[in-house]
Nucleic acid binder design. Structure first.
Length: 335
DNA sequence: CGCCAGGTAAGGA
DNA sequence: TCCTTACATGGC
């Protein structure tokens, strides 16, 4: 919500002014800065308690991810910026300690494009969050303290695009993750956009406009269930018409946005919370019925059975306000 | 082969 | 409001 203007304010022409992220007060003391170091490069200063390598480790959890390509020190992704596909590499060279966004392919970035890219990446890695209060809160917790040590600097790696986030959540309902990745790849291969560059293939998730044109029968032929096909068709339609948008949902109170999402067919509490957590950045998003979360707590707490919903709610009560991060760190412990 | 998987809708008490 | 059950299929 209040994040929108900040990146603009922090985009400096003069890179010499960027040092010392503490100068960035516009966002409540969070130290994200952006600068234009060259026409094809944008640099973001990173906040405290952020570790890019730890985030890359998380992103490497599946080898079937089709929407980005990882290397040891960078992630590359084809993304729509200024309405045009751009291939971007994100790295964090130790020499500068800044998140470095390089355009590898596509048209050169205008100033507006650079702002949009900076905002996307800042959102992707949740750079504008001050994680210190969470770490203080759970620093002595028997369950979470080991996790914030083991995954120190991990941010909730988001899915900034609402349509992509909704589709990923829908596809992931009640199937194992491996199959969810397969379904996402089929959707992307069939209806998305591809680019070949330096011997590698990069894919963009299909637009809602494109998927809105696809019949549910055709979606079912990709081995989506009728429920999933209908849910994706409905989401594509509502986003295409503008009835649902990320901006619109961000303007609503957390609970209202959640209810709004759940009015859509195929969007239940789990999907609404998942999207709240990974797209809308709701800090209180808590997919309490999530099987993976139940398994994580079962495993981490050494229980002989999965915890009930009531038990999870009791466990999470002390972490009020940080449910999304508690969930994400527990998930992380599973993979 | 059987059980589980980062659920949801629909039908019934 | 709160319980069942069907949905559909891959992975192990």
């Amino acid at each position: 919500m209040s994040e929108q203007p900040d990146i603009n304010a922090l985009l400096f022409e003069d890179s010499a002014r960027v040092d010392g992220g503490a100068s960035a007060k516009a966002n409540g003391g969070v130290s994200t800065c952006a600068t234009v170091a060259a026409a094809d490069r944008v640099e973001l200063s990173v906040p405290e308690l952020f570790d890019f390598a730890i985030c890359l480790d998380y992103m490497a959890r599946s080898s079937s991810e089709c929407l980005y390509r990882l290397s040891e020190t960078a992630v590359e992704r084809l993304m729509l910026i200024g309405g045009k596909p751009r291939l971007i590499r994100i790295s964090c060279p130790p020499a500068t300690g800044r998140l470095t966004l390089d355009r590898l392919d596509g048209e050169p970035l205008t100033a507006e494009d650079q702002t949009e890219l900076a905002r996307y990446v800042s959102d992707w890695f949740d750079l504008e969050l001050d994680l210190a209060p969470f770490y203080r809160l759970v620093g002595e917790d028997p369950l979470l303290a080991p996790l914030i040590e083991r995954f120190h600097g991990l941010r909730i790696v988001g899915i900034p695009d609402l349509f992509e986030a909704l589709c990923w959540a829908i596809v992931g309902q009640q199937v194992n993750l491996a199959f969810a990745y397969t379904l996402k790849q089929r959707l992307t291969e069939t209806y998305g956009t591809a680019l070949s560059w330096a011997g590698n293939r990069y894919l963009m998730f299909p637009t809602p406009e494109r998927l809105a044109q696809v019949s549910q029968e055709e979606l079912c032929s990709l081995q989506l269930t009728r429920n999933k096909a209908r849910a994706i068709a409905e989401v594509a339609e509502r986003i295409t018409t503008g009835e649902i948008s990320r901006e619109g949902l961000l303007a609503l109170d957390t609970e209202v946005a959640r209810e709004r999402l759940m009015k859509l067919r195929g969007i239940g509490p789990w999907t609404a919370d998942y999207v709240g957590m990974r797209c809308l950045r709701h800090r209180t998003a808590f997919p309490v019925a999530d099987v993976g979360l139940q398994n994580a707590v079962c495993h981490m707490a050494g229980l002989d059975r999965k915890p009930t919903v009531a038990e999870l709610q009791e466990l999470f009560a002390p972490w009020a306000g940080w449910e999304a991060y508690a969930t994400f760190y527990l998930w992380r412990a599973l993979y």
